[in-house]
Design a protein around this nucleic acid. Structure first.
Lengths: 96, 96
DNA sequence: TTGACATGCAGTAATCTTACTGCATAATGT
DNA sequence: ACATTATGCAGTAAGATTACTGCATGTCAA
């Protein structure tokens, strides 16, 4: 695991909306962007726009924390905990 | 532990220079800003300026990952692993 | 084939981050 | 008293982040 990958993983989980998305997808994997939007509530209590949620999903995808599967015309998202485990493992070895 | 504190912790460790500083301070606690600077090497191989390192230390301090002790006129830095353990604990409970 | 639906891409504005330079302040030692 | 040393604060410039609006593209189903 490269240094930049660790950066991506920790940056990804350093935002409450993205942690919320992870929790959501763990509870029910394979959700589409629109489904995730439906249950998105921003810091102010307002729900975020589709594009904003999409950008958060991009961040999670870049960190390889979510896996994509196309079901027809809908893109479904599920959590992959492998990079998170690896990053925490590295931190634990180094610091804990 | 508040949501914003978790953000701070993960943002703090999401930068290689700050992880380097943590490693450095774990190996030898109680180092001053100048000592940390002396062994700082940036991404390009160049060493970072005192002020840049100071800002990284601020980020770590805000995340409560380092503890400060004044010895005369020098400010000494040591790692506190408590918030890191707490944050990882929370992540582990939620996702792993 | 057309309407509805799902995603993608471009662009923008406000804010944050990360590096820097320069100057100020305060304490120590000679 | 004065030079040295250590930190602090202000400001700046480039780039990233985070939210948004609007439009384009592609696919399914009636």
């Amino acid at each position: 695991m490269r240094d930049e990958d660790i950066d991506l993983v920790f940056k990804a989980i350093a935002h409450p909306e993205r942690r919320r998305i992870l929790t959501l997808l763990l509870a029910r994997p394979g959700q589409s962007l629109f489904e995730i939007c439906a249950s998105s509530v921003g810091a102010t209590g307002q729900s975020l726009t589709r594009q904003t949620v999409s950008q958060h999903l991009d961040a999670l995808e870049k960190a390889q924390l979510i896996e994509i599967a196309w079901k027809g015309r809908t893109k479904t998202h599920s959590v992959s905990l492998v990079p998170l485990r690896a990053a925490i493992e590295l931190i634990s070895e180094s610091y804990l």
